[in-house]
Structure formats: structure tokens, C-alpha cells
Write a protein that binds this DNA or RNA. Structure first.
Lengths: 238, 238
DNA sequence: CGGTCGACTTGAACACGTTCAAAAGATCGT
DNA sequence: ACGATCTTTTGAACGTGTTCAAGTCGACCG
């Protein structure tokens, strides 16, 4: 790493509202070229010089638009989550069962992400850095995160699942966390066609559904209460 | 990253059994210097040239002993897990309550890891790469992982917790996974003194303990069964 | 028209992790 | 003592991500 790092976000003047329309063209040309090369040769093996060269701009110019190579990945995330959202919504149509809905969302993600598994893991590594804007927990990812959590909310709300108000509010966040776990497993999954991840989804979703259903049971009520309360308290400060 | 990557493990002749005693000195001098500089200036800001310079060897020589800068972190992990194991065993002495034992192990880890939180996160990022030998799931980490899981087994076995055979076998692995989750949270925790992680431990451990206790309940029996069965099936192939 | 200002563009230069051919020691059989 | 063979050591050189002083271009003002 020949990087000074820690040079995040000093910019962002009052011009955040409007993007300059003119250079948007160059910008998207660069990101498109980058995405193509990434999927052809992988992240590590694609050099900034190659990206700039193929896009017909200078290296310095690429850095005028993107403050780091890593930031080019953002385009990948955006594309992926957009595809996931629309494909999921379509697949959810008319399905009332909570478990089936949850499974659909997760399997849809696996389908959408499939083409990127080969090289995608290199992307996701960057996301593990707490300092990185690419981290799913970062402030910069707020929009994408909210969208994903919103999808989980839809999974719950249009289903026939019964649960008390408290859990209903916190469950989307918990399910999103669960999904992050699945993604983590997927990244490490080396089985053909990521068969093991599919198995994990197929069999863990019914477990989740069962537990959610049982949460209203007298014995589990305090547990469920404490979980939601804990989540809230953790979210408080910071 | 100026790295070709993917050059892991081609070495390892039949000489793995014995280390040559002679150069062990240079080797440990390098790793000691590296650890010192890492904790002084952080991982990213410590250059291989600086490490080699301070250790009084050439850059190339450092690479004769360690195939990459990343590999120098291994020393950090070894140190950390050794400290954790011994400190935990001592703290566990004579304590029969399962929840208390589990909490002790986790809080001990937080104590031991505390000095490294400032820079340590940079270490843990590397561990997220599935290809990296530093990943807690990698083959290279088997020994350390087994040791940690073994500690969780001790937590269970010398406690008064009641659980059926099946879960007793798989629970250590599950608890280790739980611990990895705590570590992940810790890495992202920016609260003073990682107060939030401590809160998470203090309040999630009783939940775990409660759930483990409830697992023998009639309604939860199938859930518990399916979890252990799933874990086993996932471990099968590969 | 001249001039100024801001957005954009350039490519050489920098610092870094890593490699490698070559040199220097070390060990050992004869 | 001498070569042979292995281990250890060296530092220049390479490819990389990133920076920056300098340039180009267009729009707008007088």
C-alpha cells in the first residue's frame, strides 16, 4: 500500500446539492471502464494507469474525480444494491409467508451477486475497514444501508407474521445484520456455485422464522424484550 | 497496493518440523522491531524500510524471513491469543456459573486487546481477506482457532450448565463465532474506552446464557436440533 | 477585445511493498 | 586446505497508488 490513507472527506463544500452536469460524462466513463476492467481482471490486477488509459484520460484526471482507487468500487455497490432491490420487490409480489419472503430476498441477493463472486471478494475486503466509507456501517453508506433495512421492513410488513410492536420496529435492523452475516459467509465460501451458502440460507431462514414466531411465547418474551432494548441502547450514543 | 498478491504457500518443504536455530535470532529481532514500530506509528505508517533499518538488516533480508509485511502481524496475533488464554484460565478459576464464565472470557479479551485498539483495527482488516492466512477461518489459523474454541469448551465443561450432548459438542464453535462477532463490533467501536462493546458483552452474555438454558425446553428442542445439525452439515464438505 | 477566474487536465515525481540476481558466509566431505 | 553446496544477506530495480505544480480551456466581465 503506497497510500497515505486518512485523507477522507475534507471536501464537500456547499455544492453538494448540485453536481456539475458537464463533467459527469467523464466521471461515468471512468467508472464504467473501471467496472469492466475489474470484472475482467479483478480488482488488484487492474491498475489505475490501465483504467485511465482505456478511458482515454490521464491518471491525474481519474484522481480528480475519485479520491482513491477504492472509491471506484462504490459504483459496484450501487449497481448491486439497486439490482437487488428491484429484483427482490418483484419476486416478493403476492407472497404472504414471512419465511418465504425472507428466503427470497436472500436468495435473490445471491443470484444478483453471483457474477461478482470470483472477484467480488476483493471488493468486500475493503468494506471491512472501519475507516473506509465503503464499510456497510459507515456514515457514507447510510443511504444504501437504510434502503436494505427498508427492504427487510417490507419483508415483514407485507407478510402474515405476528409480532409485537417493539420487535416489529427493531427486526428489520436485525435481519439486515443477519444478511450481512450471510454475505460474510458467501465471501468465504469456496464451494462450487457457493452451494454451501445456499444451504445455509435454505436452512437458517426457517430457524429465524421459527424463532420470530416463538418470540411472543411467555418464556421467550423477556429475551425478546431485552434484545430490542439492547439494540436501542447501543444505538443511542455516538 | 503494489502487491502481486496470490503468492501464498508454495514453499514449505519437508523441513517444516525443525526450524534452523541459527537465524531464529534475526527473525525474532525483525518481528520485535516490527511490533514496536507498529504500536508506535500504526501499521500503515510503518514502512518495511523503517523496520529493516531499525532492526539493522536490509530490506531484502526481512523478506527472506517474512514473505510479506502482512505476515509480520502474525506475531501480534500469537502474542494476543497467548495472553488471552492464560489470563482467561486464571480468571475462570473456581467460577461455576456459565454466564459469568463466558463473560469473563470476553471481558478478558477486551482487556488484553485494549492497548492495540488504536492501531489494531488496521491489523484486523487484513484478517477479513478470505485469501489471507491471517483470516480466522483460514487453514493457517487452525491452531489458534482450535485453541480459542478449546477455551470455550472449558467455559462450558467446568460450569454447571445443563445441556444435551449434541449441543454440548457444537456450542464451543458457536460461542467462538459469537466472540468473533464481538471482536467485529469492537473493531468498529469508536466510543471512549470501547464502552459500547463492554455494554454489548455485559448484556448479550446473559441472553446467550438464557437461551442455552432454554434450549432443552420442549418448544425449543427442534430449533436447537436443527442448529446443531446445520452446523455439522456445513462443516462436512470442503 | 483583453483579462481574470474557475473548472478541468496533464504527466512527471514520490513513497511504498516487493523481487531478484548477485555476493558473502557457513558447513562439510575429502 | 579446497572446492561444493547450501543458507543468509544485500541493495538496486520494478510496478503500484497517489500527489502536485503547471498547464489548457471556456465563460464571463470591463
Amino acid at each position: 500500500m503506497a497510500t497515505p490513507r486518512r485523507s477522507r472527506r475534507a471536501e464537500r463544500g456547499p455544492d453538494t446539492v448540485h453536481r456539475v452536469a458537464k463533467s459527469e460524462e467523464t466521471r461515468s466513463l471512468i467508472v464504467a471502464t473501471a467496472m469492466r476492467l475489474f470484472s475482467e481482471k479483478g480488482y488488484d490486477r487492474t491498475t489505475m494507469r490501465a483504467i485511465a488509459g482505456e478511458a482515454g484520460v490521464s491518471v491525474g484526471n481519474a484522481y480528480y474525480y475519485f479520491s482513491a482507487k477504492e472509491q471506484l468500487i462504490q459504483g459496484f455497490y450501487d449497481e448491486l444494491s439497486h439490482q437487488h432491490l428491484t429484483a427482490s420487490r418483484q419476486a416478493l409480489e403476492g407472497e404472504p409467508d414471512f419465511g418465504t419472503r425472507l428466503k427470497t430476498v436472500l436468495l435473490t441477493w445471491l443470484d444478483v451477486a453471483r457474477p461478482y463472486h470470483r472477484f467480488g471478494t476483493q471488493f468486500f475486503v475493503n468494506a471491512a475497514d472501519p475507516e473506509s466509507p465503503l464499510s456497510p456501517f459507515s456514515v457514507d453508506s447510510t443511504a444504501a444501508r437504510e434502503a436494505s433495512i427498508g427492504l427487510m421492513r417490507e419483508v415483514i410488513e407485507s407478510s402474515d407474521v405476528k409480532l409485537d410492536q417493539e420487535l416489529r420496529e427493531e427486526l428489520p435492523g436485525l435481519l439486515w445484520l443477519y444478511q450481512m452475516g450471510i454475505v460474510l459467509f458467501w465471501v468465504h465460501d469456496r464451494s462450487p456455485h457457493t452451494k454451501r451458502t445456499r444451504m445455509l440460507v435454505e436452512r437458517s431462514v426457517p430457524l429465524i422464522a421459527r424463532l420470530v414466531g416463538l418470540s411472543r411465547l411467555r418464556v421467550l418474551r423477556p429475551v425478546s424484550r431485552e434484545i430490542t432494548s439492547l439494540i436501542r441502547d447501543l444505538a443511542k450514543q455516538d
